[in-house]
């Protein structure tokens, strides 16, 4: 296999400006940068409260070269629905409307609006960049926080005790035309999925794993490597689901042991070997379940 060089598939046009307020090594800012490259200039972004509310810059700045609406925490999907309705009302069928939300705004507080929009099959692209906790407020657990993780609200001897919510399965259950997971660590896969999503009508959902150096207690330069390790260890399989029925794994996850992935992150520092074993068992069982869904579709 000869790879196509990344520079030949990555569009050169930038829609993200320098000087944005993301922390060094932020996976969320890189995610936005890549996604927008694939979407192009005919894009409007609805942005509920999340890290990106800060990254986008304070008044009178904007770090995006695209129209952007800051909205309330739980309204990513509903504000986007309204924007799309307005564009259609004025005859604009071309512009892509993106709801860009964090895991809190998606898995937790925004889930109702998202479910509503998905059920209505609103013609929007909902992107959840998942950094696995409420990072903007200073690392509190969300329902996207993985089993065993430390956060400021799962402190000390009581790390996160519940497995991460399976958001993709929830979205798939809405029978939306397209749902997929991706990460900036695999740009080719990410771009292909964004392009596919862009070309699809109806509700499209992208779940992006966006490592967060301050929240995960990792080095700034490990963001991409961590996302890669998560994929390789089957913690974050890269897949796409069409119409809730056709499940497909798009990038091979060879099943590296999860230990090294956890060991790189301060939020898992307290884990003992048996904890890691339990997490591995959960990852394995989820992977098996995924394999069954893939095989069965």
């Amino acid at each position: 296999m000869t790879q196509i060089p990344l520079k030949e598939i990555m569009p050169h046009e930038e829609f993200l400006e320098s000087g944005h307020l993301a922390c060094p090594g932020c996976g969320a800012s890189l995610s936005m940068r890549m996604v927008l490259k694939a979407l192009g200039e005919k894009t409007v972004v609805a942005l509920p409260a999340c890290c990106w509310s800060i990254i986008a810059g304070p008044y009178p700045q904007s770090s995006l070269k695209l129209p952007l609406y800051h909205s309330a925490f739980e309204t990513g999907a509903s504000v986007a629905s309204g924007i799309k309705a307005a564009l259609l009302a004025r005859g604009d069928t071309e512009t892509t409307v993106v709801a860009w939300a964090g895991d809190g705004g998606t898995f937790d507080i925004g889930l109702q609006a998202l479910s509503g929009a998905a059920e209505r099959n609103e013609d929007i692209l909902y992107v959840c960049y998942d950094n696995e906790a409420y990072m903007n407020t200073g690392i509190q657990r969300s329902s996207a926080t993985p089993l065993g993780a430390w956060t400021t609200t799962t402190p000390g001897a009581h790390p996160e005790a519940r497995p991460k919510k399976d958001i993709l399965a929830i979205l798939a259950a809405h029978r939306i035309p397209y749902a997929a997971s991706a990460t900036p660590a695999y740009p080719e896969d990410l771009l292909a999925k964004v392009r596919k999503a862009k070309a699809t009508k109806g509700t499209r959902f992208l779940h992006l794993l966006a490592p967060c150096p301050p929240g995960w207690k990792t080095a700034d330069d490990e963001t991409i490597e961590l996302a890669r390790m998560a994929v390789r260890a089957r913690i974050f399989p890269l897949l796409e689901i069409e119409n809730g029925e056709t499940w497909r794994i798009t990038v091979d996850s060879p099943g590296d042991p999860i230990g090294p992935y956890l060991a790189k992150q301060g939020r898992f520092r307290h884990l003992k070997n048996e904890d890691i074993g339990a997490i591995q068992a959960q990852v394995d069982s989820r992977w098996k379940a995924l394999q069954r869904r893939v095989a069965g579709s």
Binding site: E17, G19, G57, Q61, L68
Partner: peptide, 10 residues
């Protein structure tokens, strides 16, 4: 609150 510049001022 409407933007008038990019974040490049930072």
């Amino acid at each position: 609150s409407v933007s008038q510049t990019s974040t490049r001022v930072n």
